[in-house]
Design a binder for these strands. Sequence first.
DNA 1: TAGATTGTTAATCGATTAACAATC
DNA 2: TAGATTGTTAATCGATTAACAATC
Lengths: 209, 209
Amino acid sequence: MRKIPKPTIRRLAIYYRCLERLEQQGEENISSKLLAQMVHIKDSQVRKDLSYFGSFGRRGIGYNIQKLLSEIRKILGIHKSWRVVIIGAGNIGQAIARFKHMEKHNFQVIGVFDTDKRKIGKQITNNLVVSDINSLESFIVHNQAEIAVIATPAEAAQSVAERLEKAGIRGIICFAPITLDCNIPVEYVDITVFFKTLVHSVVSQTHNV
Amino acid sequence: MRKIPKPTIRRLAIYYRCLERLEQQGEENISSKLLAQMVHIKDSQVRKDLSYFGSFGRRGIGYNIQKLLSEIRKILGIHKSWRVVIIGAGNIGQAIARFKHMEKHNFQVIGVFDTDKRKIGKQITNNLVVSDINSLESFIVHNQAEIAVIATPAEAAQSVAERLEKAGIRGIICFAPITLDCNIPVEYVDITVFFKTLVHSVVSQTHNV
DNA sequence: TAGATTGTTAATCGATTAACAATC
DNA sequence: TAGATTGTTAATCGATTAACAATC
């Protein structure tokens, strides 16, 4: 199989959310041209991205929305539900735990952990209570959690990552501002990095105009 | 000025957080080799990134941490403080409003807005109360807010973006799962997209091993 | 001086885009 | 048939990496 560009995967997830919207609006088909317009890219990019995985469209007509949704689900691996644990019950950890879109997108938060005695026992949602991090490994094994969210301070993140990997977690979303050493896939979401890159655009835009 | 690759800007923000840590640990200098190791990239990448903006190192010695921090601050535009408003007081909006790292990194959240009467008036932090979105424009103008966070549902995001732009906001962080039509810089942070790309890595890793 | 490390150039690698034959 | 649109190839563009002279 040809190597798939990483940006292609990200865009598939973005096409997916457009297609969901179009489906809701009762549309049947969509052309690469229109889909491209919705996300501000070139239509050839859309076709190229999809072509890595197969031929999903019909010439002269476009792509059937239902079908494309189902194909992208399979490509991304979101046709099944994933069990998620969250480490760190601070602002970010709690927000993710309560985040409605998670469940809707087949990510099931099944556990939230913290070291802080004052947070342990706290009710986060109807069926989520903050657990002691001591029980992390046994919980992961018993409940077959697959994905973990690291929402701890940076100092704790590396050792948490190692525990997660050992316990059998298969992928990590890391909100902690640190690069992890580990052998499973990690997606980094450092919120402040987005603010900093944004501000750079703002500043340099002014210079150039 | 040569065109700066967008990934370079993101990496500068990441070098920055490493340098902060190194500074705290009392280090004086750092080589591109060591810095590269910390973030899992090549040392030539580090040097290249910095070289777009000047010559900040000393051959045989490396980069002075204090100096490099100060240079990156200037490059990114984070040497000054930025005033931020948040639109949408749901899980994400509230988490950002309470997020300690914001203040620490010179992003000052000065207002939180929502349409929901039940949320308006709610105390978010010691000095933040949810305001009615009706007062958005006047607030932005009076308080000279520069950056906005859109943490509304997708359906509301576009019209909010237009109001923000008109009111003089200069950059947007968009958590809503939608691509905005607007003429100011936008950084997109769709949390579920990160989960989806992660899951794709998890799934395809299994296939290839 | 010898070893370390930068800054920069040129080579390589990877991603995007244009163009167009195929076909609905 | 004529118009629309895909799927794919080749060309272009952009980003990363290796290599090395300069120099601390």
